[in-house]
Amino acid sequence: MALSNSWKRPALVAVVFIILFLLLRQSSVSPSTPEVALTAEEGRPSRSYPPPKAPKPAHEAQQLIHDVPSKSLDEKLRYHFPYDIESKFPAYIWQTWKYGPDSGKFEERLRPFEASWTALHPGFVHEVITDDAALHVISYLYASVPEVVQAYEAMPLPVIKADFFRYLILLARGGIYSDIDTQALKPATDWLPPNLDTTTVGLVVGIEADPDREDWNDWYARRIQFCQWTIQSKPGHPVLRDIVATITEDTLHMKEAGRLRKGKEPPKSIMEYTGPGVWTDALFSYFNDREYFDYSARATNVSYSDFFDIRVHKKIGDVVVLPITSFSPGVGQMGAEGPEDPMAFVKHEFDGSWKPESERMKDD
């Protein structure tokens, strides 16, 4: 037994160092072509949405450097993970699971799903981060923001940590996060129209739920719900910064109040804590944030109705919202088409996941 333990420890350290090396690799892809106006439906113009404001002057960033420790969590994240909209989408694919694909414990039913991402993205770095390695990765990436690491360590359940991890890795490194039980149907280079200028896009999300029924509130927490099993982003995007700050502060408050216990359900539902509910809120908050958008020429905010029954891409500022078919083909409801549809990009199999479908819906 002593020999076995002495062998495992160096092996784990080696795996962590390999992962950290890959995290630091510079790898990106993004075709650059002229921008076009996207529509809510084929043939009908979308209403006009304001573009993101220009970044703050460099001298403001210099002022922040001298006083980072005293700043708010959001300001610290803004400083350590700056956002450059004109950069390319990093060519990373991030997934998490209890075991890596090279382990004999990796479930056979998951192998075709995991392999589909590698097959369709030959130029990408594809990493499946194990539960054991995740804490080391987060501790490295967020060493300068210890509150985030403390919050991650305090989370009582693996499903909550997995939710948090996707936002953390995308904020720090960008790329694509997708659950281990998803199958790539088309490469990410086909997710956006070929004539869309990707230097004007920083985040790509899909609609998870658009329940056009009176009792929608019995099943979902939001009338329009954005999925977070697949997300593409550039590093430092404000939506990711906002949700990381929100979850971190929420977690530390619950920890200080003694409301978090390892292995026990948190005092709030996963939907509202780290799942699609709080993710959807973060997106709508961004769409209506005057810090980033000039709404002087608009009378109303972006609301749920802006996304009812959309069938093609819809661009608001630097965020592209995909229709439900893109990440939820074949669900047989809410207008989703089948996996063979041209707009079907990722299929969520709901197979072998520790996160049941019910946890993406409103708790009874």
Rank of each mutant, 00 (worst) to 15 (best):
T200Q: 15
A54D: 13
L24R: 11
I18T: 12
P193L: 14
L203Y: 11
E107L: 12
K262T: 14
G277H: 04
T182F: 02
M254F: 15
G104D: 08
T200W: 08
Q333L: 07
F345R: 01
D351V: 03
G123D: 13
E214G: 09
I65C: 05
N301F: 12
P57E: 05
N195K: 09
A133P: 02
E108T: 10
A151K: 02
V13G: 03
E108P: 00
R109L: 15
V145C: 09
T280E: 07
H313T: 13
E153P: 05
T182I: 01
A299F: 12
Q62P: 00
R109A: 12
S30I: 03
H136A: 15
E208G: 01
D163N: 15
E249Q: 14
L12Q: 14
K315I: 05
S70V: 04
K53C: 11
V346L: 02
R166M: 00
A184N: 03
I18V: 11
D281P: 00
P112Q: 08
E35F: 10
D210S: 06
V145T: 10
Y99T: 00
L24H: 10
V36E: 11
S144A: 14
H348R: 09
F350H: 13
A282C: 08
A91H: 06
S326G: 05
H253Q: 12
I129M: 00
K264H: 14
R298D: 07
E359C: 00
P235T: 08
F106M: 02
E349M: 06
F327P: 00
S296F: 05
I176F: 01
Y140R: 08
V204S: 06
S358T: 10
S4C: 07
F284K: 15
S46M: 10
E208R: 04
K314V: 14
F165H: 01
P266K: 09
I310D: 00
R111W: 01
T130R: 03
A14Q: 12
H126W: 00
G277L: 03
F165N: 09
L64Q: 13
I224D: 00
F327H: 02
L22H: 02
P339Q: 07
Y92K: 07
K268M: 12
R78W: 11
K264W: 10
T199Y: 10
E256Y: 06
S27I: 10
T230W: 00
T246L: 11
T246K: 10
Y273C: 00
R9T: 10
L171W: 04
D84N: 14
P57W: 02
P235A: 11
E249P: 08
E256K: 12
L135C: 03
W191G: 02
P101V: 02
F226S: 01
D181Q: 08
W229E: 03
K161I: 01
S4G: 05
A58M: 10
K262H: 13
